[in-house]
Nucleic acid binder design. Sequence first.
RNA 1: GCACCCAUAGCUCAGCUGGAUAGAGCGUUGCCCUCCGAAGGCAAAGGUCAGAGGUUCGAAUCCUCUUGGGUGCGCCA
Length: 597
Amino acid sequence: MPAFTEAFTDTHDFKTQLSDSAQAAFVAEGFDAAAGRVNASDRPDLADFQCNGALAVAKAAKANPREVAGKIVSHFTDDARLSKLEIAGPGFLNFTLSDDALSARANVLAGDARLGAPKVAQQRKIIIDFGGPNVAKPMHVGHLRTAVIGESLKRILRFLGDEVMGDAHFGDWGYQMGLLIVAVSDEQPDLPYFDADFTGDYPTDAPVSLDDLERLYPLASNKGKADEAYRDRAKKATRELQQGRKGYRALWQHFVTVSRTALIRDYGALSVEFDWWKGESDADPFIEGMIADLKAKGLLEPDQGAQIVRVAKPDDKKDVPPLLVVSSEGSSMYGTTDLATIVQRKTEYQPDLTLYIVDQRQSDHFEQVFRAAYLAGYAHEGQLEHAANGTVNGTDGKPFKTRDGGTLKLHDLISQAEEKATARLHEAGLGEGLSEAAFADTAHKVAIAALKFAELSNHRLTNYIFDLDRFMSFEGKTGPYLLYQAVRMKSILRKAVDQGVAAGVITVGEVAERELVLLLDGFDNALKETYLKRAPNILADHVYKLAQGFSKFYAACPVLVGDDAGVKASRLALVRLTLRQLELGLDLMGLSAPEQM
RNA sequence: GCACCCAUAGCUCAGCUGGAUAGAGCGUUGCCCUCCGAAGGCAAAGGUCAGAGGUUCGAAUCCUCUUGGGUGCGCCA
């Protein structure tokens, strides 16, 4: 199995270019190449890029950092990319790009179908596991997190060249299924599903609606906690379901189908798409063989009536409990299905990497499962990764609740956001010329952008506060701001067509133009960082800054208003380039901009 | 009890493998539509980066401790 370095290719941004040159210079002077790392400047008033390597290297070499910096500078004489290279303070290298270099870069980007995005050096097969929503539990705001972050990561990894499969990984196989079976049998005992001697065909229509499931699940769950006899019945039903009792399987199939319909609706509204709608139950056929294999490898041992795999290591700082593979009831646990799913994926897909986009509260669980998988040889060390996310809290800092104390269903949240967006559109007197369908589409895009961008702009581990009013304000650093800038650009492009102005060669002159091109150039690095850290907030930040950079440019540099045809053509080309990168960035976040808003 | 995560402006959050004057948005106070869409732009005020030590030429960032939050710890997922 190859070791993957997560390196990139097709990368031509200035940060990389200058780093390459600076590294060569440091090496030529007998220093470590790592010192040549060039970053965007902390002081944009002084320079575009900086390198701090001279300070780092000087100490070991017992040299004066400014002298070291001087030696590096000598390697850049007559570098056409730079208009200025200065040594500042204790030994910072300050690079300022020439307008010509920026113009050239802008024109390259304008001709690049990938808008400056890099590619992975080595393609991998990656599964993104969305840590599935559960059957019968309605999606709530907490599910936004995983869905939105996972979808964005999926799109980004795929765009950079990996083969990526998103798997919903439905929670459809545990104790909760037993609970539901018992709950339905109590309410509708005459259904054929419960008659063990029934030999006919089971009804094709579901005996329960989505509302029934959402009502029954919490009811049964609470009963199971309070009533031991009830719990035992549910456990028995769970085991019988897993062992293949026909009536239970048929009833269970209805649960899954009914739930999945609602999930498809909600995920669809969020533009979250799965390549696989698999669930825990799909791993079931692999469990028997896996258990035999674990036994053969001497990893499985009986303990307190259950079958476990010990995964603790001698140097553990904490107690890592064993993974429970078979419960004392004889049924599979979520650890069982998670491990069996790894076996299944290895058998059916051979992924190089599996990313679990799941709440950080499950980190111990994944640690156990991953260790067991590594021990059993179902995956190689490092191929399983828990890209944890934080929890969503309300304005009181506690897990999000509505004002009346209930949980807000995702479906209702989306509806509220759409209503708000609709109201805002009417208020601004916009979209009146649009057809009803186009208007609704715009309102939907605005609403989704608000929700998703709010998710994506936080780091995935942040336990952030979900404040509906703030998210719906549509002003400042929000999704609608991004869409608004895109719409402004589209408006310019439409006007340009009317006026017969065509895009031409980009020539950078004004400060706002320089800054915009520097931002466009930064797309490459933003994508790399996002990829390496599995952190879409880095991309979100880039896209926001790009939109902001455009808005400043828009205010400072009229595109279609002047007399100079060359300037018009250049600025128009810059607008078009910016729009293309903005829309690509939006798409990688799972968003899209309307024509008008 | 043990372990993990977190603490940055009034509020919500960024801050890359340590580097110059810690950044956004909201809110507050001023400006800016006879000019491509004001869901916008410009400017100002606002921070002992929880506290204390340590490493370092240099720390919000790395290490230790303290305080204060959150989370998890074999038969629910």
